[in-house]
Design a protein around this nucleic acid. Structure first.
Length: 295
DNA sequence: TTGCAGGGGTCAA
DNA sequence: TTGACCCCTGCA
């Protein structure tokens, strides 16, 4: 079956998609944008998104998705994996920058996932002053307590709960998930979204600047969390989330000195423009995997 | 073994 | 502009 230039073949409990370019599961799932995909012993990744559990592998232009159907590929996974976007072209444009070129060669198979906005927002509220393994544990705990159970290969997985469900929790209930001081932000933020004080669906139609200030009205959400939310849900590609890793790599590779948050933001907008967010992903992955700026 | 620093930031003073 | 913040892990 042909779909948008891709050839879909049903196989067993899943599908094979032929004609895939610029897709490396390790790069995609380890570049810091998501917390719910786990590497399996065979190198594939299993994760839960949009209420479905799938196992994903990709090599030689063939993307294998287990536990899915061609219909779900059209309705969910094509968009989720951003398969309509030409990353070869993006990389070609960004690689005009000699420094970024190295980071792109390192993480050549990165794609920006179109993740659920609410899940992304809460996940990155949890990320504040936290470590990645801990963030993953807290997100998993919240999903297990409040989310829907989904079975796959004899195991239970749990979808991330919607904002309504989260907002109906008490602070005491949520605290068993070990979110620490961020729990009160999660309760308040999900409540504001439930009460339509902030409408996440509307962000798509707003300017980047307006979307960011809308998000930062939520407790626990500063510029960095707002930018992560906009980027990793695929709403805006022109933001440049600047965490400690990105700051370190920018200082070491571009500035050759200490640089302020504002300097880095301005520099990224000027140098990477509409593609700043994609550039950020190549740089974050490059910095973290190579421990840049730690020595 | 115990103790302490510090982490994908944000908030309040 | 600066310190506190939940909780956990790594390292003396």
């Amino acid at each position: 079956m042909e779909y948008k230039g891709l050839n879909i073949i049903e196989k067993g409990n899943g599908i094979i998609v032929e004609g895939i370019k610029d897709f490396n599961p390790v790069h995609i799932f380890e570049c810091g944008q998501c917390f719910r995909w786990f590497r399996q012993d065979d190198g594939s990744y299993t994760g839960i998104a949009r209420g479905r559990v799938v196992n994903v592998r990709c090599s030689d232009g063939r993307l294998g998705i287990e536990n899915t159907t061609p219909e779900d590929f059209k309705d969910i996974w094509f968009e989720y994996f951003d398969l309509g976007r030409d990353y070869s072209y993006i990389k070609q444009r960004l690689a005009n920058d000699k420094i970024l070129k190295k980071a792109i060669q390192f993480g050549y198979g990165i794609r920006i996932l179109k993740q659920d906005i609410g899940e992304t927002l809460i996940s990155f509220i949890i990320s504040a002053n936290n470590r990645i393994p801990m963030i993953m544990k807290v997100v998993a705990a919240i999903s297990k307590v409040y989310g829907e159970e989904v079975q796959f290969n004899g195991r239970s997985y749990y979808a991330f709960p919607d904002m309504n469900r989260l907002s109906n929790s008490t602070l005491e209930q949520l605290e068993v998930c070990k979110g620490g001081f961020r729990c009160k932000y999660i309760i308040k933020t999900s409540g504001m979204i439930r009460d339509n004080e902030v409408n996440l669906e509307r962000l798509t139609h707003m300017s980047t600047e307006a979307a960011r200030s809308e998000l930062t009205r939520l407790p626990g959400v500063g510029d960095k969390v707002a930018d992560c939310t906009l980027l990793y849900s695929g709403i805006k590609l022109n933001v440049f989330p600047t965490d400690v890793w990105v700051k370190r790599v920018m200082e070491e590779l571009f500035f050759k000195r200490e640089a302020s948050h504002e300097e880095i933001q301005n520099f990224a907008q000027e140098r990477f423009g509409e593609l700043a967010g994609v550039a950020q992903q190549y740089l974050f992955y490059y910095a973290r995997e190579n421990k840049i700026g730690l020595g």
